[in-house]
Design a binder for these strands. Structure first.
Lengths: 112, 112
DNA sequence: TATCGTTATATCTTTACAAATATAACGATT
DNA sequence: AATCGTTATATTTGTAAAGATATAACGATA
């Protein structure tokens, strides 16, 4: 069996984590469901954890990533800003590029 | 303050972790001290944890990474094999290349 | 065969983090 | 003003990882 190089990347701002793979996944689920609680449910994580993540995302980012509304029709909801949508697209792109880059480097290990 | 992209890479073999930053640091300390217990002490981690790490490294690698000797003059010791030395060199090289690659990608986020 | 400092291993304790639970606040709609 | 499903928040409980402690095994040396 041969070696594999794995990686995790994340974006920080002011020493605080803004985006990682888990947060991106959560943002995508919010985009699909229109609600933080539904997004948490589909990802099988507690509402509290999901809320903490989104709170941290919005506190770390330079511009709002989600708009959360409380009360009103349907009880409220959450949706991504245009900035948020752009962020997850770029994150995925960089992450994929990183994987491809690391795959290229794999030979250096197997040839030892 | 501006964004930063951070990363962790690690090498796996058969779904088991072979090398990560912590393990590389430990291997370097073994190389410098000639002993697993001394290496653990300098890195401020318990001997048990250090031993578990090295055990996992050697079980995951295709060829031995350290030679551990018990008993004898000085009580024994641990040293890196040539393969182990080569591995940590290559790991550091790939890791640094990855950082540089990610730094190049940073503009895509800042320009949003 | 007694000594030494190391590797090897088991067991218990503590602690930090995740999970579960409960409840308050919100505001458009009726 | 009563209702609804959501966001927001505090408090408690459970669990797994980390840490501490203890001890066995090892083998060259003297």
């Amino acid at each position: 069996m041969s070696y594999k190089i794995k990686s995790r990347i994340w974006i920080e701002c002011n020493e605080h984590v803004l985006l990682g793979e888990g947060r991106v996944q959560l943002l995508k689920a919010i985009d699909e469901t229109g609600s933080l609680s539904k997004a948490a449910k589909t990802l099988n994580l507690s509402y509290k954890k999901a809320w903490n993540l989104i709170d941290s995302v919005n506190k770390s980012a330079k511009k709002p990533v989600t708009i959360n509304s409380t009360g009103g029709k349907g009880g409220g909801g959450a949706e991504l800003t245009e900035y948020g949508k752009a962020l997850i697209l770029v994150f995925d792109e960089i992450n994929q590029n990183c994987w491809e880059f690391l795959d290229q480097q794999l030979g250096k290990i197997e040839d030892l």
